[in-house]
Amino acid sequence: MAEPDLNLLVALDVLLAEGSVMGAARRLGLSASAMSRTLTRLREATGDPLLVRAGRNMVLTPHAEALRERTRDVVNEARGVLRPSASEPDFATLQRTFTIRANEGFVEAFGAPLITAITAIAPLVQIRFAPKAEKTALHLREGLADLEIGVLSEMGPEVRVQALFRDRFLAVVRKGHPLERERNVSPERYVAFGHVVASRRGQGTGPVDDALAASGLKRRVVAVVPGFPAALAVACASDLIALVPASFVRNRLEHGESQPPEAIYTFELPVETAQITVSQMWHPRLEADPVHRWLRQLVLGVCRQREALWRD
């Protein structure tokens, strides 16, 4: 029996990731006709159409969907086998760009000390913080991101996870807000005012709403904004209450960015909500990479150091 052409695996991986002949051709540096011929060979090899026309676009068949992650893992494993054995990196001359997916709050609170720690050891390394429009392991699986930082969600069983620090949410209002005069804000007073919520996905509810509902209360969400900086800015210019992580607030108070420390007033939520654990996540193909391991250790060290500073 003829041996299969293993070069087709790379083309299959890209086709399944792109879901498009043209997109796969661009990534592989091939012409559209050459990519179409490759798709024909893949169809013959797998006995499945793989990509089929749906209107003006193409979609994966069920068999192609089932093959996507397996193909990605096989290709990554093959690349690892053919990669030179790891040696101790020369950080003084290391030139590499790391892509870290994180929300604005993390970048504001930890971005500067992390960049300082990295460039002090590896001055030629570049850090690219990418926005998290959604929670998905796709960017890690496809090598589009080196790290994902945030609250753990359904990322798939293969994704590696390490806890960085624990955080909690605080309520924030402008200085001079009626609630500033109250020593202990009651749940009833908390829901008496409108609220501004930060959500990348446009969701207006969360754990605090569940806790309020247990007491028969409901807050009125007046506005939903994409990030914590925007929520804080709205709260500082209105009577709305913002809900933001303590780490983000402490960083703002420490540096006086955008809103000076004297412009905001914070208080504990009047209902019990669970603390959140912020973690870093990566794909297992980078587990043994000495440079990536060095990056993970620096991220962990910076986060733990900042957490200890705020706790003191």
Rank of each mutant, 00 (worst) to 15 (best):
residue 56 R to W: 06
residue 95 Q to M: 10
residue 71 T to K: 00
residue 93 T to A: 13
residue 70 R to I: 03
residue 72 R to Y: 02
residue 57 N to D: 14
residue 60 L to M: 11
residue 84 P to L: 14
residue 57 N to L: 13
residue 78 A to F: 01
residue 71 T to L: 00
residue 55 G to D: 11
residue 54 A to N: 11
residue 80 G to T: 10
residue 92 A to F: 06
residue 93 T to Q: 06
residue 61 T to F: 02
residue 63 H to G: 08
residue 60 L to D: 03
residue 64 A to M: 05
residue 55 G to V: 12
residue 97 T to L: 05
residue 51 L to F: 08
residue 77 E to K: 02
residue 53 R to A: 09
residue 64 A to Y: 02
residue 68 R to L: 03
residue 78 A to N: 04
residue 71 T to F: 00
residue 66 A to I: 05
residue 50 L to F: 04
residue 83 R to E: 15
residue 92 A to S: 09
residue 93 T to M: 03
residue 78 A to D: 00
residue 63 H to A: 12
residue 48 D to M: 10
residue 48 D to Q: 12
residue 53 R to T: 15
residue 59 V to R: 12
residue 67 L to W: 00
residue 90 D to T: 05
residue 71 T to R: 00
residue 65 E to V: 13
residue 90 D to C: 06
residue 52 V to E: 14
residue 70 R to D: 07
residue 94 L to D: 07
residue 71 T to S: 01
residue 85 S to D: 12
residue 70 R to K: 07
residue 83 R to I: 13
residue 74 V to E: 06
residue 50 L to W: 05
residue 68 R to M: 02
residue 88 E to Q: 07
residue 83 R to G: 08
residue 90 D to Q: 04
residue 74 V to C: 05
residue 91 F to N: 07
residue 48 D to I: 11
residue 53 R to G: 04
residue 82 L to F: 13
residue 70 R to P: 08
residue 59 V to L: 10
residue 67 L to H: 01
residue 48 D to W: 08
residue 49 P to Y: 11
residue 69 E to L: 03
residue 95 Q to Y: 05
residue 74 V to Y: 00
residue 95 Q to E: 15
residue 87 S to V: 15
residue 72 R to H: 07
residue 87 S to K: 08
residue 88 E to S: 04
residue 80 G to P: 08
residue 50 L to Q: 09
residue 55 G to S: 10
residue 72 R to K: 10
residue 65 E to W: 02
residue 77 E to P: 01
residue 67 L to G: 01
residue 50 L to A: 09
residue 76 N to E: 11
residue 89 P to E: 10
residue 69 E to Q: 05
residue 92 A to L: 11
residue 72 R to P: 00
residue 75 V to D: 00
residue 77 E to I: 04
residue 77 E to F: 05
residue 96 R to Q: 15
residue 67 L to S: 01
residue 53 R to P: 05
residue 62 P to Q: 05
residue 60 L to T: 12
residue 91 F to S: 09
residue 92 A to Y: 02
residue 48 D to T: 14
residue 93 T to K: 05
residue 49 P to L: 14
residue 77 E to A: 09
residue 56 R to Q: 14
residue 82 L to H: 08
residue 63 H to W: 06
residue 60 L to S: 06
residue 55 G to C: 08
residue 64 A to G: 03
residue 75 V to K: 00
residue 89 P to G: 08
residue 89 P to R: 04
residue 53 R to K: 15
residue 92 A to E: 10
residue 49 P to S: 11
residue 62 P to Y: 09
residue 85 S to I: 15
residue 96 R to H: 12
residue 92 A to W: 06
residue 94 L to S: 06
residue 86 A to L: 09
residue 84 P to C: 15
residue 73 D to A: 07
residue 54 A to C: 07
residue 96 R to D: 08
residue 77 E to L: 07
residue 64 A to S: 03
residue 53 R to S: 08
residue 72 R to M: 13
residue 95 Q to T: 15
residue 84 P to K: 10
residue 73 D to S: 03
residue 59 V to P: 01
residue 70 R to G: 03
